[in-house]
């Protein structure tokens, strides 16, 4: 073996070093490590310094905070039930229709944005649709759509459909770009048309994931539908906004609990459906 000098075991250890320091884990260069730490420290001090908190107001708020926690633990579903149920129906219908519309539209856009199946011109058009949809938040799109289409769930429906396109088409395009070229070539070799190619060579490979992603998007759309109501695009968000504005924390707690329950239900059942599909 490499070093027979020390076969006597522990007796000859005295000549070895007594200290060992671990080399730095992330940044090896010392000046860069210290420089970045110093910058982070300066930023932290400045950020805390410019925070400007009205502590008197915060202290006053603590009592309200306690009332919110109590309201959350003893929710009141009854008093505002007509408003809650109306908002909930709007949210749920908006979620389902916008997801379906979004999925239907994202399939052509997604195929168009996949480099290996779409012509160059179509590719660039579809990619820019995706880029626009992804870089604008739902709430900003909602503001614009509410201005154009008026208040109510229709603007919300359009917002969520548009956001779904950006989300799904991008992932779908990436999936199609990743698919097994050999299977596609095999289909091409049989003399299939472009549509047949998509149907036989692409669809079977991306379908299970598309279904999974659509279910995931359904979940996201529901959560978002609770938000865009704040700017007037319909749904449970508007009800929640009103409840909080009136400091009715027990009704607000009830709405939040309903949202949490529906999201949990959606997550649980989407796992079930995904297993069923595969």
């Amino acid at each position: 073996m490499a070093s027979p000098s020390n076969t006597a075991g522990d007796s000859g250890t005295a000549s070895y070093p007594t200290r060992w320091t671990r080399p730095p884990v992330f940044i090896q260069r010392a000046w860069l490590r210290w420089g970045l730490s110093l910058l982070a420290l300066i930023w932290f001090v400045l950020a805390i310094g410019t925070l400007d908190v009205n502590w008197v107001r915060v202290a006053e708020g603590l009592e309200r905070g306690w009332r919110f926690i109590k309201g959350f633990l003893t929710p009141d579903f009854v008093t505002r039930w007509p408003d809650i149920s109306k908002g909930l129906v709007e949210s749920l219908t908006m979620t389902l229709t916008s997801t379906v519309a979004g999925v239907l539209l994202s399939v052509p856009v997604g195929i168009g944005a996949a480099r290996n199946v779409a012509p160059k011109a179509v590719y660039y058009v579809c990619r820019s649709i995706i880029a626009v949809s992804r870089s604008l938040q739902e709430i900003i799109i909602a503001i614009l759509f509410v201005t154009m289409f008026g208040f109510g769930p229709f603007a919300g429906f359009l917002t969520l459909s548009f956001a779904t396109i950006g989300f799904l088409a991008k992932l779908l395009a990436e999936d199609i770009e990743d698919i097994d070229e050999k299977q596609m070539e095999a289909i091409k070799a049989t003399g299939a048309s472009w549509l047949q190619l998509i149907n036989y060579g692409v669809q079977p490979q991306v379908m299970p994931r598309l279904i999974g992603l659509s279910l995931y998007r359904l979940d996201i759309n529901f959560r978002e539908s609770a938000v865009i109501g704040i700017v007037g695009a319909g749904g449970i968000g508007a009800t929640l906004n009103t409840a909080i504005d009136r400091y009715e924390f027990d009704s607000a707690g009830a709405i939040l609990l309903i949202i949490i329950a529906i999201v949990m239900l959606a997550e649980y059942s989407s796992g079930y459906v995904r297993r069923w599909v595969q």
Partner: peptide, 16 residues
């Protein structure tokens, strides 16, 4: 489940 905008809505109402 609860979007940060909703958390913000709540917190603005609680602590200003």
């Amino acid at each position: 489940s609860i979007n940060s905008l909703i958390w913000a809505l709540l917190l603005v109402s609680i602590i200003g």
